[in-house]
């Protein structure tokens, strides 16, 4: 295990780490107090990715964010993948581990997207079983991220917020609240994002995500927002962020920018904006 001394993420801005920013971050991280990595990108046996991660972990609290565990899958968890995750977490001893309320693997095929599931008693039981298994295997509490969704299931029996709250109650996991996902999913189904936020157990939020989205329309002329992580955070999302931290308190807040990744100063400026907004809300 690396000798890291970061028991938790600080309630300040972080960014999703991209290899092209390594030298910039080492030279001057600016307002960025912690870094998040996608677990799957660090599941090689060695080489530059793990060397860079080792160097960053000596200086910054690290959040390991999984994108491939398929916690919402109908089938059992991929034991090999869970073992790889345990190997990474045991070595890195990160300040946080999080995954998604989504599925991505079916019958051994990994589909590389965060796919939606219906909210009902049997999917709730299955997601809770999977989270129990993850937390038991990793020996730590995990955070579960609310999804950006584009469609709904006729068989759904409960709201997403009730579903998430029930998972938190049953498994003891925390929430990773992606405020952009709240805006995207609520817009896509014509729901009120403020009511969504107010229905969540905000005291169980361990981390907040902010990111950019694309705007389209569906074939009926309804707005259809796409969670692209390829742009600046939109103004309505900043407003929801301010509402979230005013109600739930300031939390470690991540700027996610995964496609069309900008130069470091642009990303650092987004992180600075999150810090400024948090200071204004706290004042």
């Amino acid at each position: 295990m690396l000798d890291t001394t970061h028991p938790s993420l600080p309630p300040r801005p972080g960014v999703g780490f991209k290899a092209q920013h390594f030298s910039d971050i080492q030279a001057d991280p600016g307002p960025v107090a912690w870094l998040e990595i996608h677990a799957e990108n660090y599941m090689g046996d060695g080489g530059r990715p793990l060397a860079q991660l080792r160097a960053l972990a000596e200086r910054f609290p690290i959040s390991v964010h999984g994108v491939g565990l398929s916690i919402g899958g109908e089938g059992p968890l991929d034991t090999d993948h869970l073992a790889r995750l345990k190997h990474l977490v045991d070595w890195l001893n990160p300040a946080s581990f999080s995954e998604h309320l989504a599925w991505s693997t079916h019958e051994g095929a990994y589909l590389n997207d965060l796919l939606p599931l219906p909210y009902m008693q049997d999917t709730l039981a299955r997601v809770c079983d999977h989270i129990d298994r993850v937390q038991h295997t990793l020996g730590r509490r995990m955070l579960l991220e609310n999804p950006a969704t584009y469609l709904e299931f006729a068989e759904t029996e409960m709201t997403e917020t009730d579903f998430l709250a029930a998972i938190v109650r049953r498994t003891g996991c925390g929430l990773l609240l992606d405020v952009n996902n709240v805006h995207v999913a609520c817009t896509n189904r014509g729901a009120d994002p403020v009511a969504y936020l107010d229905a969540l157990p905000l005291d169980q939020v361990g981390e907040i995500h902010l990111g950019g989205h694309d705007a389209q329309q569906d074939e009926h002329g309804n707005p259809l927002l796409i969670d692209s992580h390829g742009a600046q955070v939109a103004d309505p999302v900043w407003a929801l962020y301010a509402h979230t931290i005013a109600r739930g308190g300031i939390r470690p807040t991540l700027i996610e920018w995964d496609t069309d990744v900008p130069d470091w100063p642009v990303l650092a400026a987004e992180a600075a904006r999150a810090a400024t907004l948090a200071a204004e809300v706290a004042a």
């Binding site: 469609l151 299931f153 006729a154 896509n188 569906d218 309804n222």
Partner: peptide
């Protein structure tokens, strides 16, 4: 069993 906003078809959304 999938639908978009207001119960309409999910074609483009899928």
């Amino acid at each position: 069993g999938l639908h978009g906003r207001g119960g309409r078809g999910a074609g483009r959304r899928f």
